[in-house]
């Protein structure tokens, strides 16, 4: 099993609903976030293009944050989800430095926190809160090992890219372009 997420930049309007839904679902304190929205503008008026992306932990196959964690708090569970065990984390921040996506933050309670693909929902057969809330339905989630899953289907059908492929992390959040 290999969980992955695909996000359609052609449909995303950048409303940030994914960010609020994550905060209320995962009790992320105000002022922090596990996911965020970026917008890049290219061209010159009136030949302009925008790409809007909802970004988060890429749950990399080759995760530098897991390799550098001195306590084993950062680890990978079934489905390739990168998790942090809060009570094993000493808050040293090595993982924050190693992540090319800046996907981790120091929680005020002293541990490092980040997106879990809403693992607590996955184990109950659900999907991440951001995927469930998105008004444009621009996010697809599922098992890449299942060719029939919606994420496999959409990645087979559409052009996509990943962020910072040169980092060699083999990220598992895909952006449809």
């Amino acid at each position: 099993m290999r969980y992955a997420m695909a996000i359609d930049t052609k449909k995303c309007v950048g409303c940030s609903d994914c960010v609020v839904a994550c905060q209320t679902e995962n009790n992320v304190p105000i002022g922090y976030c596990r996911d965020w929205v970026t917008e890049s503008v290219t061209g010159t008026y009136p030949l302009v293009e925008i790409e809007i992306r909802s970004e988060r932990c890429n749950h990399c196959d080759n995760a530098p944050c897991v390799r550098c964690c001195p306590t084993g708090a950062s680890h990978i569970v079934e489905g390739g989800v990168v998790m942090v065990t809060h009570n094993k984390c000493i808050g040293c921040g090595a993982c924050i430095q190693s992540c090319p996506y800046d996907a981790r933050y120091s929680h005020p309670e002293g541990y490092v926190d980040k997106c879990t693909f809403c693992h607590h929902r996955l184990v109950e057969g659900g999907r991440p809160a951001c995927v469930e809330v998105c008004p444009t339905r621009c996010m697809y989630f599922g098992d890449l090992d299942q060719p029939q899953s919606e994420v496999s289907q959409i990645l087979a059908r559409r052009k996509w890219k990943v962020l910072a492929p040169e980092a060699g992390t083999r990220p598992q959040v895909y952006f449809l372009v």
Binding site: V20, T24, E132
Partner: peptide
């Protein structure tokens, strides 16, 4: 809303 609130509703 078809089960999906917007950021303001969620917030």
């Amino acid at each position: 809303c078809n089960g999906r609130l917007c950021p303001r509703g969620t917030g």
